[in-house]
Amino acid sequence: MRPLLLTAAFYLLSGAILAGAAGTVLLRRPLYCALSLLFTLLATSALYILLGAELAGLLQIIVYAGAVMALFILAIHMTGQDEPLKTPPLPRLLLMAAGAAAAGLFGLLMLAATRFFIAFVKLAPEPYSVAEQAGLIFGRYTPQFELLSLLVLAGIAGAVVAAKKKL
C-alpha cells in the first residue's frame, strides 16, 4: 500500500507543481500569479520531503515560500499593481518564438539528461543527516558559503539604498 501511496503522492504533487507553474505564467492579475507561485513552491517543498531532502524542503518553506513570496506580495501592493496591465494583445510572432524557445530548451535539456535515465529514484528514503550536510557546507563548500554571505550583504545594502527617498 505504502509504495502505491508514495508513487501516487509523487504524481499528484507533480501535477500540482505543473498547474501552479502554468498559473503563474498565465494568470492575468499579478496577485493571482503570486498566489499561484506560492502554491507551486509549497508543492515543491512537499516534493523535496518526499524525495528525502528534508532540510531542503523545510528551508524551502521558510525562505522561499515564506520570505521571498512575502516580498513579492509586498512589492505588488506597494506598486499598486493589483490590476492587470492595460496592454494590447501580444503579437503572435512573439508567442510562437517564445514557445519555440521554451520547447527547444525543454527538449534539449531532456536529451542531455538521457544518459542517466536508467536510474530510479527511491521515494521517502533515509534523508541525509543535517550534520552531514552542515559538514559539507562548512567544510568543502566554505568558500562558497562565505561568498554567499557577501552576496546577501550586497543585497541588503542595495535594497536599503534603493529604498531611501534621499541618499
Binding site: A101, A102, G104, L105, L108, L109, L111, A112
Partner: peptide, 8 residues
C-alpha cells in the same frame, strides 16, 4: 535562449 539551444 535561442543561443543556449544552439549551444546545447
Amino acid at each position: 535562449m535561442a543561443g543556449l539551444c544552439l549551444l546545447l
